[in-house]
Simulated scan of single mutants.
Amino acid sequence: MEIKNKYVTIKNSINGAPKESDFEIKVENVSLIIESESKDVVVKNLFVSIDPYHINRMKSQSSSQGTISFATAITPGECIDSYGVGRVLFSRRPDFRKGDLVAGLLTWGEYSIVKEGSLLNKLDPNMGFPLSYHLGIFGFSGLSACAGFFEVCKPKPGERVFVSAASGSIGHLVGQYAKLLGCYVVGSVGSQEKVNFLKERLGFDDAFNYKQETDLKLALKRCFPQGIDVYFDNVGGRMLEAAVANMNIFGRVAVCGVISEYTNATTRAAPEMLDIVYKRITIKGFLAADFMNMYAEILSKTVEYVKDGKLKTVEDISQGVESIPSAFIGLFNGENIGKKIVKVADE
């Protein structure tokens, strides 16, 4: 028995800002009959994650592509793998049965064939939360926010914390974790709507629209007259330079992403090295994969925070495989608030 699988691919490598014309929707036949010796699992995709780091995989060359399996280059014309949630349609493996809800490395399409050894985990259907949460607050975004803030930044109660791209999938969680710890928190975003969102809905102490600031260093000086202790960086570029200029002695910077540099190499950061040396500033990059050994512990705590109303999450959900390219492109135009997800099919 075969079914038709609609999926998204790129036509050619993308070395600048992504455009609709860079993508193509293809249809192929997928067999639901798996040989008895096969360990493949056929999954019907329900939700797929849309993340900016994929742009580095779509480039003809990027230094990130040889560092970790999640960052390998995407071949034009082939399926694009991404974290997703789905339901098992067929499996000969004893650990997965038809009907199981799963999360793992699926594809930007309607169906996925997951090979043995690929990331795939069963989900508890009785958690009582939307399945989409497993792509955001209960997924890699939540892991990056919690582990990146607490394990990399090593914050202390009362410290002054700055978060860039603070209304994004990770930033909006980091700010809340900082407030729960008792820190003073400021976020940078790209619109007044997002400023209001941070201050009124998430409880940030302050926020500013970086697009309306002619001097980012002065903007941060205004928000942090006593200096910055912790900077959670999702942006890189000029924002990193401005944050370093305003950091206190022994300040810490966790570099989670550098989205301002992904599509424009001319925006690469050049922080003042004398500040880094004399203020003894620590700048450390990290990946969510670095903290997979802590995932179960972090998930348990996060679930309790959400149940107790201490942690809020926001999702921006588009509908259908056809919406994936525009959803992805929107990340680089600042169109989303919260975690960007595409709903592929009904549960």
Rank of each mutant, 00 (worst) to 15 (best):
Y7R: 03
E315C: 05
A345V: 12
I281L: 08
I55H: 07
S132H: 12
K122Q: 11
V42D: 02
K11I: 11
G99K: 07
Y295N: 08
S188M: 01
D100P: 03
I50A: 06
V88A: 03
V186G: 01
V230P: 02
P94D: 12
V258E: 07
C183V: 04
G338Y: 00
Y83L: 15
L101F: 14
G168F: 00
D275Q: 10
C256K: 05
G227E: 03
G158W: 00
G171T: 00
C79A: 15
M58D: 09
S60D: 15
D81R: 13
S21R: 04
V342P: 04
R252N: 03
N126H: 14
V30C: 09
N333Q: 15
A245N: 08
S21G: 06
S13R: 05
E2Y: 13
V186Y: 00
K310E: 12
Y305G: 01
N196Q: 05
N293V: 11
S191P: 06
T313G: 02
D316I: 03
I324L: 06
G136H: 09
A269L: 12
F208V: 03
K156D: 04
L101G: 04
I276V: 13
A289F: 07
A296M: 11
I68V: 13
I249A: 09
K284S: 13
S326N: 09
I281N: 02
F162R: 00
K194R: 05
A270F: 10
L135K: 08
F328E: 02
E322V: 13
V186Q: 00
P18W: 02
S144N: 02
A178R: 00
S318T: 06
Q192K: 08
I337Y: 01
E110S: 14
N209T: 04
P76Y: 00
T72A: 13
V85P: 05
N121S: 15
L105V: 14
K307N: 09
L274N: 05
V342K: 01
V342Y: 02
G320V: 07
V152M: 03
F250V: 08
S323I: 14
I298M: 07
K39R: 11
E315W: 01
R201Q: 07
I276G: 03
A270E: 09
G84K: 06
V102R: 05
D100A: 04
F204K: 01
H54T: 12
P225L: 10
H134G: 08
G104D: 10
F291H: 03
H172C: 06
D308I: 07
F150Q: 06
V258R: 02
G320D: 07
K4A: 15
N333M: 13
K156M: 10
D124P: 09
L120E: 10
T67D: 07
N209L: 02
E347G: 09
H134P: 08
E24I: 09
E20T: 13
G142D: 05
Y83V: 14
K343M: 11
L274C: 06
N336E: 04
E315I: 04
A289Y: 11
K312V: 10
S82I: 11
S60V: 06
Y111H: 10
P130T: 05
Q61T: 15
I137V: 15
L299F: 14
R92W: 08
M127H: 15
E35A: 14
D22G: 06
A207F: 00
D215I: 05
V48S: 06
S63I: 12
V43R: 08
I276F: 03
K39S: 12
K98L: 05
N264P: 04
F204L: 01
Y53I: 12
H54Y: 08
E78P: 04
L216N: 12
L218M: 14
A269P: 10
